[in-house]
Design a protein around this nucleic acid. Sequence first.
RNA 1: CGGGGAGUAGCGCAGUCCGGUAGCGCAUUCGCUUUGGGAGCGAAGGGUCGCAGGUUCAAAUCCUGUCUCCCCGACCA
Length: 506
Amino acid sequence: MANRITPQSEDYSQWYLDVVKEARLADHSPVRGSMVIRPNGFAIWERMRDRLDEMFKETGHQNAYFPLFIPKSFLSKEAQHVEGFAKECAVVTHSRLKAVDGGVEVDPDSRLEEELIVRPTSETIIWDAYRSWIQSYRDLPILINQWANVVRWEMRTRLFLRTMEFLWQEGHTAHATKEEAVDETTQMLEVYRTFAEETMAMPVITGVKTASERFAGAEDTYCIEALMQDGKALQAGTSHFLGQNFAKAFDVKFQSQSGELEYVWATSWGVSTRLIGGLIMTHSDNQGLVVPPKLAPVQIAIVPIFRGDEELAQILTTAKPLAEALKKAGLRVFLDDRDQYKPGFKFAEHEAQGVPLRIAIGPRDLANGQVELARRDTLEKQTIPIQAPEDFARSLSDLLDQIQHDLLQKARLRMQQNSRIVDTYEEFKTEIEKGGFLLAHWDGTPETEARIKEETKATIRCIPMGGDLGGTLNQELGLNGGIPNSGACILSGKPSSQRVIFARAY
RNA sequence: CGGGGAGUAGCGCAGUCCGGUAGCGCAUUCGCUUUGGGAGCGAAGGGUCGCAGGUUCAAAUCCUGUCUCCCCGACCA
């Protein structure tokens, strides 16, 4: 039995690519750095999208859609913003091609008067629209989200983790007061944390980015940071407090209750298809993808084992009512009666694709009044007696909940075991090689941060605010309502009010 | 942009040094046998060898140019 997936221990990067390929999540496309998201991958994204969309609506947001193209001049209106994105923009310069002996070339006569930028993010085009939407405090807040694709001309790419074009959502809100905008920023951060943990079973640390890691144009960038199996950190979502920067750049003012003209306060927040990369590197193993039940396109695969049509028909008399009852109970089921593949092939395929539960039913089982039940996350198999389909549905539904819960616990434990306190720079340099989150004191200066990055490739992932790293660490960081301990910077020895989280990151 | 690797059947590759009928494995199609962990045998289909020039009786192979992808760094969700 040839395993087509490179073991994690041999080459984690290759393992990742193999899982993406074997689970048929995505392919490389002919264009460098962009990918084809295949039905298996897109089905996971759809489930993520649906749940997030629900959460956005629950918090009062509406969806809208803004254009793909942004006039070049818009990008330059916010100084920090243009500086951050200028180097990675796709630019549309011409509007047509013309045929030349057997091929086509860009028609030089079609040059655009003002070049168009393919959106790397939509703050500018949206704030241009908001100017005409907002006159009075009564027009606020504006709470809008859009589902879109964006393009960032990246140097190096990896499927899902960094592609030149990616799918995401971007929320853009406008508020009358600073306080309200800050509340919105942290509220959406909390939405992301909840989604990551409850739906993806991916534990995260919430926190604030340092100035050098901040979104271009933001006053503060909040983030959720996850820890992957190989010890590298992944920024999984960001929520920005934009202050009045974009309102000033696009001249968006409103008349307050007292009649004054004031600039509007803004936030933006987003998560992308990168989350799928995070999902893979949180749960999966050498057999392939592991998907938490809430996101699994197929939650239960039923594999009949049979010789010939007659035996298949006999097994289907048990398998079909079971599949129907499971579907009726709201579970996503695939009755895999394909006859061109042997059971072993199907087992391997469902495992590679991360189907959480598998039920195998053969003549031997029917004779004994049982079925074989296999859990994808633990790879455990057990035989269980055949029950009434409705009872089956109930117990399998419970088991799926259990798996969802166990995956989060397992991932949280891993994050906790790979998070540790370091107090000296020597120790830091040794420990960073082992991966994980390092909790260290920092003097708050960009110079120290830059030097540590240069010497160790570690960045400050965030100044932590929330999350669960376990008793001692929680206490040290003041997570969950406590007060963080102060100390001295590992590099400069200067005073530090609290530890920050360092890691090497994707 | 610097360093490395690679473009030959849907996928993975050999052949290139030393020019001479375009091959192998997997996949696909058909038939028979199979079916409790990636089935076996037999047959069949599928290629302008990344592209453009050049040398030659003859180019996947030699020469020149060019494009693209992947991996490692600098940049980043």
